[in-house]
Design a protein around this nucleic acid. Structure first.
Lengths: 363, 363
DNA sequence: CGAGCTTGAGAAAACGTCTTCTTCCAGAGG
DNA sequence: CCTCTGGAAGAAGACGTTTTCTCAAGCTCG
């Protein structure tokens, strides 16, 4: 075909070389059980000698199965998503599939472009891990017969399912961890509130505060956007308000990093002057200065649950994967060094240690 | 095909509905010039009504063009790569292509798996942006007639080309920036030395040091591995040596973040006690504490250069992209706040400012 | 007014694989 | 010995496009 090289080593060539029919070669390549092992090894030898690789496109065309699953994320730059992608990739490969990644960059145009790509490539399922997605587009996918799984959007039509994350327990742990040390002025920086996940996290924070009987003043809840820039801006606003909080819980780790940037610029010491808690436990969280206390969400669980929800038919070669589909992805607090006693602690006399081990679970 | 939904809206259906032949529909979809506009609009209308989307697989099968380019990276977790991926994605979309991403995770097994995937999916070109790759695998790609482009590996067979990065000027800027402030004990933490890019960066550092007439003691060059963990470990070794450097240049930003983690743990103040310089200028660099002085490499240039080197034929719809292929991807120093006067500065009396603006180029 | 063009549109042959349907052969049971 | 059964391998028909022919008009120009 091409001007260079004879890429024309197709199934027929192999068949001729092995002295069998194309059908037999096909059967051998697909590990069909009804083929004489002697013949099979001859075919395999021929295939290897010719550097034969089956043409995925043709295979997909006839079988109607692309062996592709789509993953749509918000942006690739945000370190949370690469970790998610990595987990998805591992999980899909185990199941004998491949991953087609699309990033929306929060632009509606790119969103619909992503969806179109998925449809054109005939993916067998799409995981929508973006925070906030146009419902119509999901409808469109469903109309094309493509199963869709998303997060925190329960109660959806038949072809689409939803994974839920147990934000409440992790965030409750964080709130209690701070409260035990004597914090009462605990602020919260959310993500964009028209995003479902952001709303759920904020609700979890509010519920936890109510539970321990602390009333949250309105100006202690600030809307960010899940980016470092947004976290920085939110922190700047928060820290210039008349009544400073002694602790801040952030809707994700990137926001927390932005907050840390702000404290550093203002000469506030963490955790002495202010405690900071993140959410996600991205890899980077271990390496912020100081290392970030955060709530961990298990991406691998999330990926596994999503893929299970898609109900992909296992490939011939792939070993059946244990369906670990927990209905609720768990979260838990990881205590590092951005949380400590509040400035004017009323509790202990001894202040030798700045960090108190509370519901600790070191890593 | 599937048990759900009639995804069988193919070109024939559209043709029937519009009252034309399949060929005409095909021509309309591909913007062939020789079709009556009146007919075209009728076809377009029918296609829209039926939610017709052309089947990429069939299209690729017959045309022999997958409209896919492969990108192989080392790992997705390392923040440098997502930024690279983003730039590649943008650049490929502009050219009317799509991106197939593979990550090697430094595992030979995954490397060959990546290559096989690329071959099977019949990508029209592969950009190998991993630091260190098995030459045999690249050979294999070339044998299949797939153009390959990699970085810093000039002098390769005909189907593969190579992009070069101008490490020297950026790193020289960094060294001079430090020297001007009075630093003489400037250490270097490299990446894995069996990786080409890592060696080149180290060579650039050494050349720059020679140029300004400073002899580097052997224990001032430490091998890291381009990860935060590696940077941390290297810094720990470096800081426990008898003669502390006053500045450290790191082979990439992740290493520098690891170093910052170490300084923070040891109570060393940056830049007062020690200056730190990174390389790459990942997005995160702006938000470390304190913000990281680093050498920026323009990922977008790199992506554009790589794609140009692949010589992809422009798609019908895509507008011809200006070939910005500069032979050498430039780098330059971005001064932020991790660099300043050395502790026992011999130069100025006034120590009001800790950071001196030298070859500054703020962002 | 007819011959030679140009233009627009249909018919059919690829593209590389899977899969159903056949065919063939050998062994077993009658 | 003949037929029946079952397994193994071949032939051919999809799969949904693109694309090259082929053909019929509609023009222009002599």
């Amino acid at each position: 075909m091409g001007v260079y090289g004879k890429s024309s080593v197709d199934i027929r060539t192999v068949a001729r070389r092995a002295g069998v029919s194309m059908a037999t070669v096909s059967r051998v390549m697909n590990h069909a059980p009804t083929v004489d092992p002697k013949l099979a090894s001859r075919v395999l030898k021929a295939a290897k000698e010719l550097h034969y690789t089956p043409n995925t496109q043709a295979r997909a065309l006839v079988s109607g199965r692309s062996r592709l699953v789509g993953l749509i994320v918000s942006e690739i730059i945000n370190p949370f998503f690469p970790e998610l992608i990595q987990n998805f990739e591992d999980a899909t490969v185990i199941r004998g599939y491949e991953l087609l990644i699309g990033s929306t960059n929060y632009s509606p145009a790119r969103m619909s472009q992503c969806v179109r790509r998925m449809v054109e490539r005939k993916v067998e399922g799409v995981a929508v891990m973006t925070f906030g997605m146009d419902e119509d587009l999901l409808q469109e996918l469903a109309q094309c017969g493509i199963p869709v799984v998303s997060v925190g959007r329960s109660g959806t039509p038949k072809l689409s399912s939803s994974i839920d994350v147990d934000y409440r327990s992790g965030i409750r742990e964080a709130v209690q961890h701070l409260a035990v040390m004597g914090h009462r002025d605990i602020a919260f920086i959310s993500g964009s509130l028209h995003l479902n996940a952001a709303r759920q996290r904020q609700a979890a924070y509010q519920a936890a505060m109510v539970q321990i009987g602390i009333k949250v003043p309105a100006h202690f809840i600030i809307e960010g956007d899940h980016t470092m820039e947004g976290g920085f801006a939110a922190a700047e606003r928060l820290f210039s308000s008349p009544r400073m909080p002694t602790a801040v819980i952030c809707s994700n780790d990137m926001t927390a990093i932005g907050v840390l940037h702000s404290t550093s610029g203002r000469g506030l010491r963490v955790p002495k002057d202010i405690s900071v808690v993140g959410f996600d436990d991205i890899h980077m969280a271990r390496f912020t200065v100081p290392p970030l206390t955060t709530v961990r969400m298990a991406c691998s669980d999330l990926a596994a649950a999503a893929l299970d929800a898609l109900q992909l038919k296992p490939s011939g070669a792939a070993k059946p994967v244990a369906t670990t589909a927990s209905p609720l992805v768990p979260t838990r607090l990881i205590v590092r060094q951005t949380t400590g006693l509040p400035r004017k602690a009323k509790l202990p006399k001894s202040r030798t240690r700045t960090t108190v081990p509370t519901p600790q679970r070191k890593d």
